[in-house]
Computed example of a mutant assay.
Amino acid sequence: MASTLFTDCWCSSSSSSATANRFVPFHKFEDGLLRSRHIRFATTTNPCRLRIDASASAAAAASGSPSAAVAAETTAKIIDGKSIAKQIKDEIAAEISRMKDAIGVVPGLAVVLVGDRKDSATYVRNKKKSCELVGINSYEVHLPEDSTEQEVLKYISGFNDDPAVHGILVQLPLPAHMNEQNILNAVHIEKDVDGFHPVNIGRLAMRGREPLFVPCTPKGCIELLHRYGVDIKGKRAVVIGRSNIVGMPAALLLQREDATVSVVHSRTKNPEDIAREADIMISAVGQPNMVRGNWIKPGAVVIDVGINPVEDTNSPRGYRLVGDVCYEEACKIASAVTPVPGGVGPMTIAMLLSNTLASAKRMHNFK
């Protein structure tokens, strides 16, 4: 089978789909983060037909595996990220109430927003609303698009020194004239609730070292596996995509859980062959329906991080959202799968709130 080519930049469509493509401004991802000014918008009459590869089916039947033989008739368990995120938020709210009653401290999250992007402003509003729901104090600085890097760094420095602020989040993307790494690295590691500081990532990569924070989307993926009782230890795991934000830290987290981990990326030959080895798959490349049913091992657990707009003339918006994984096909092969939307996305904000609570507890030595 010919390899399917893809990129790690979250912005191109699958070359394996019979699609006609055009670019439109679209900035929403399932993990709530922004990384690209344009996303390829796939136009297709039927972007995800059920077309299980005949050779893969024949091989499964020849193997005599009962699970493989019935895979096409089974329906995967749906991993409901929205429901799990609500449970976590309720737990966080109860813990914040206990902390406030015991020591009079309320966790605080500061958000720095630069520019007038409507999508970024929407994300900040959603995070602020989530903070209010669980009892976290939120602080916001909204700077104009033409602000200097030094002005942004000044506000970050102020939040670093503010004892009422336990977490700092810089909303991405920043304007093109700013050095993103300089600004992200200016956040004190003790308040890096996004988990992007290089020291936190370095600790995540090292055995015997613990990061203060884990990036929210990969952390949410692992939390979903835990809460659905998926055993990770000793399993074969495949992560599709190697971005610093999701793919790379997800692979490190799975390795910490004693999985045997492979990473599929834009230079991987025959990625579908590697993907079919996975007991657990996490896909985070941002290409609609790239992962087909014949990429999936019967009975595998599939976590789909991607969220992509595909043209849909039946939708009032003119498009609908799909993941990296062909959901209809995955449901016939996998034992469990996350939907898009409603899977990983709600978990990202829940993990941000969890990291902020953990930061406040650590700073005030509250158990």
Rank of each mutant, 00 (worst) to 15 (best):
A284Q: 01
G158L: 14
E328P: 00
A278P: 02
G247W: 00
S55V: 09
P25A: 12
L34T: 15
I88Y: 04
T75L: 08
K77W: 02
T74C: 11
S266K: 05
P107Y: 04
A72Q: 10
S83R: 06
V337I: 06
G81N: 01
G229Q: 04
K100P: 00
Y139E: 06
I96F: 10
D8Q: 04
A93T: 04
T268V: 04
D161Q: 15
A284W: 05
E311C: 11
V239C: 05
N200E: 06
T268G: 07
M1R: 13
V239L: 07
A76N: 04
K128Y: 08
K82M: 07
K367Y: 08
V199K: 11
L143V: 07
T356I: 06
F366L: 06
P163I: 13
V302P: 02
T268E: 02
H364D: 07
A110N: 07
V337H: 00
D273Y: 10
G299S: 06
V337R: 01
S147Y: 08
P215G: 07
Q287M: 12
R276D: 04
I282D: 02
I156T: 08
A334I: 01
T75H: 11
A2N: 13
T74P: 00
A76E: 03
G323N: 02
I39Y: 12
K219T: 02
G32V: 11
P175A: 13
P211A: 06
A20K: 14
P47G: 09
A62H: 06
K233G: 00
P298E: 07
M248Q: 12
S83A: 15
E223G: 01
L357C: 11
I156P: 09
G32W: 12
S16P: 03
E149K: 03
D279R: 01
S138W: 10
H142Y: 12
V301S: 05
V152S: 09
F213G: 05
G195S: 06
L169A: 12
G299T: 02
A58T: 08
A62F: 08
G342C: 01
R292G: 09
L204Q: 04
L174S: 08
S67N: 07
A85V: 01
S36K: 09
S262M: 07
I240A: 01
K128W: 08
V302G: 00
K77H: 11
Q181H: 15
V24R: 11
V134N: 04
S67E: 12
P144M: 04
